[in-house]
């Protein structure tokens, strides 16, 4: 294991120990923050797979989060209020399966188009698709449109009860662990080598006989599906789902988490999400003008901390794009 891997292990260990302490001592709000943090870390990890390791700067990952959340919300809505019997369920496996399936499909269709473009065109077309989904959801009156959807029932699984904050957190934490290991496995596989090779020099990989486009598309679909899964967790956590989750600024926040923590490192997204949540919480409790120090911090990080915090901690510069 490298030093960067150790940082990931330490972060995961901390996240395993702290929240039960919060519950034990009655700090339920801190528990909420930890849950949100872990879910965002999963979403950021999925973005890191394409952005960090694949060099594909997606500015539309918030759409996957939103789609995943609505994949939980819409079945729950129909289960409560009738209609659309085929998907009116509270069964967690169906809901989460739906979240993964829908986002993977969306990633496949949009990825086929987006990956034809490069550079800033890719950034902007991913954002365009996210905006389309955003306005698409807003236009559906039945699911609340701009007002969002309040769901009164969480996904139901055998053995675990998501209404219990600790069990919900447990599910999120285990999910994060699995996602981190999964990303690690992908990155170290032959598939991951080709993907990372494509980032450095696409033409050379093509000359070597690899269909880089196909590799990138598969990575994009995997990333979208993981992000959709994070969205399903988020929907279960907040029990309120709104188009706001898919706003372009949310995609920007996910990018910030990855860059802040350190792109193309395993620990990066976790550290980035943690810093993001802590900063947001601390600064906004000081002043309503908290966007000012937050924006300055963002600029300073980009200008001076290349490789992100993980790079700083492990003493090795990551690859700031």
């Amino acid at each position: 294991m490298t030093r960067q891997d150790w940082i990931a292990v330490i972060m995961l260990a901390l996240l395993a120990v702290l929240p039960p302490l919060f519950i034990w001592t009655g700090q339920y709000f801190w528990m909420d923050l930890a849950t949100r943090l872990v879910i965002l870390a999963i979403a950021a990890s999925s973005l890191n797979l394409v952005l960090g390791f694949g060099g594909l700067v997606s500015f539309g990952h918030a759409a996957f989060v939103g789609l995943g959340a609505y994949a939980v919300g819409i079945p729950a809505y129909h289960w409560l209020y009738g209609g659309m019997d085929a998907i009116a369920v509270t069964n967690g496996f169906t809901q989460f399966g739906l979240a993964i399936g829908v986002t993977a499909f969306f990633a496949l269709i949009t990825g086929m188009i987006c990956l034809r473009t490069r550079g800033v065109y890719f950034i902007m077309i991913t954002m365009a698709f996210a905006q389309m989904i955003y306005y698409g959801i807003v236009s559906i009156e039945e699911y609340g449109g701009d007002d969002g959807l309040v769901i009164d029932t969480r996904s139901e699984f055998p053995l675990i009860d998501l209404d219990d904050p600790l069990q919900l957190y447990g599910l999120c934490w285990v999910s994060l662990l699995v996602v981190v290991l999964f990303v690690r496995m992908i990155v170290r596989s032959r598939f991951g080598m080709v993907l990372q090779g494509g980032k450095g020099n696409e033409e050379r990989m093509a000359t070597l006989g690899y269909n880089v486009y196909a590799y990138q598309l598969v990575a994009y679909v995997i990333s979208g599906a993981i992000c959709g899964y994070a969205g399903a967790l988020l929907g279960n956590f907040t029990t309120f789902i709104s188009p706001e989750m898919m706003d372009w600024t949310r995609s920007g926040e996910l990018m910030f988490m990855v860059i802040l923590g350190g792109a193309s490192t395993l620990a990066g997204p976790i550290i980035g999400a943690t810093m993001f949540i802590v900063l947001e919480e601390v600064l906004s409790s000081w002043t309503v003008y908290w966007h000012l120090p937050f924006g300055l911090f963002l600029i300073l990080v980009v200008l001076y901390i290349r490789g992100g915090l993980t790079g700083l901690l492990s003493g090795k510069k990551g690859e700031g794009e």
Partner: peptide, 28 residues
């Protein structure tokens, strides 16, 4: 925004342990 408003309410309820929650300009 509804999502931010809900988070603000959660914080008032869980952390500040207020007795009443009031205000609310927006229906959503």
């Amino acid at each position: 925004a509804p999502e931010t408003g809900k988070q603000a309410t959660d914080k008032l309820v869980k952390q500040d342990d207020v007795d009443f929650v009031t205000g609310f300009i927006w229906s959503h």
